[in-house]
Amino acid sequence: MLRCLHDKDVSQLSIINELALGYSFSEEKTAQQLTKLSADDHHFLLGYGDPETGEFLGYVHAQIYESLYSPTGFNVLALAVHPEHQGKGIGRCLIAGLEDEAKARGYAFIRLNSASHRLEAHEFYRRIGYDGDKTQLRFIKLFEEGNDD
């Protein structure tokens, strides 16, 4: 069952992010980000709860993608399902919910990036109608937390 994300999901969100995506991020920081992003109209967060138990099992997080060279769309920042529940249609349901939201807003596309080693994820995206159109490298410069320099 698709639903909004709630504060009570923070613990499970943190676990899913680590197990499904490989990102270790504390519950405290997850809670801070959830509060901040939930209040930002440029972010769309959609969760999936087990229809029988209500247990939080996965989520999709997308951000509005706007540029000077394309119409408006969504950029998927995360699609994650607890590994014990993968392969049950939850990811497909979350993407369908995101697609419905994109269409309702009149957006032209949904885009996403997937690491080159995530071959199973690539097959999933192809099965649900997404085309891999290019290969990229990600460049990043990290700054110390709280450093204003």
Rank of each mutant, 00 (worst) to 15 (best):
A96S: 11
E144K: 14
L137T: 13
R126H: 06
V10H: 08
L77M: 15
E18V: 00
K103Y: 04
D133N: 14
A121D: 04
E84M: 00
Q86R: 04
R126W: 01
I64W: 05
D7C: 06
F56M: 13
S116W: 11
L46Y: 05
T53I: 10
E144M: 07
E145W: 02
Y59R: 13
E52D: 13
G106L: 08
F56D: 12
I110Q: 03
L112I: 09
Q63C: 13
D7P: 07
L2M: 02
I90S: 02
D149L: 08
T53M: 09
S14E: 01
Q136F: 11
P83Q: 00
I64C: 09
E99C: 07
H122D: 04
G54R: 12
Y107R: 09
F124N: 05
Y65K: 13
A108V: 03
R105T: 06
R138N: 11
E66D: 14
L119A: 10
A62Q: 08
L37K: 14
A102V: 08
F139R: 11
S116L: 11
N75Y: 14
D7F: 02
Y48K: 08
L46F: 05
E99F: 01
Q63W: 09
P71V: 04
Y130P: 06
L94P: 02
S24Q: 09
R111G: 10
L57H: 03
K8F: 10
G58I: 04
P51W: 04
L34Q: 06
A31L: 11
T35M: 09
R92H: 08
F44V: 15
T53A: 09
N147G: 03
S114C: 13
Y130V: 07
S26A: 03
D133K: 14
R127A: 14
G129M: 12
G87R: 03
G91E: 04
F139E: 10
T30Q: 11
S14D: 00
F44I: 14
S116A: 13
G47F: 08
F44E: 10
H61S: 06
G89C: 05
A20W: 01
L142I: 10
Y69R: 13
S26H: 02
Y23G: 00
H117Q: 11
G91H: 05
D7T: 12
R105K: 15
I110M: 05
G47V: 06
D50H: 14
V76D: 04
K88L: 11
I64H: 10
R138P: 00
I90Y: 01
E123W: 04
L13I: 14
A121K: 02
P83F: 01
T53K: 10
L19F: 00
G106F: 03
E52M: 08
G146D: 07
F139H: 13
I128A: 07
D9R: 12
A115V: 06
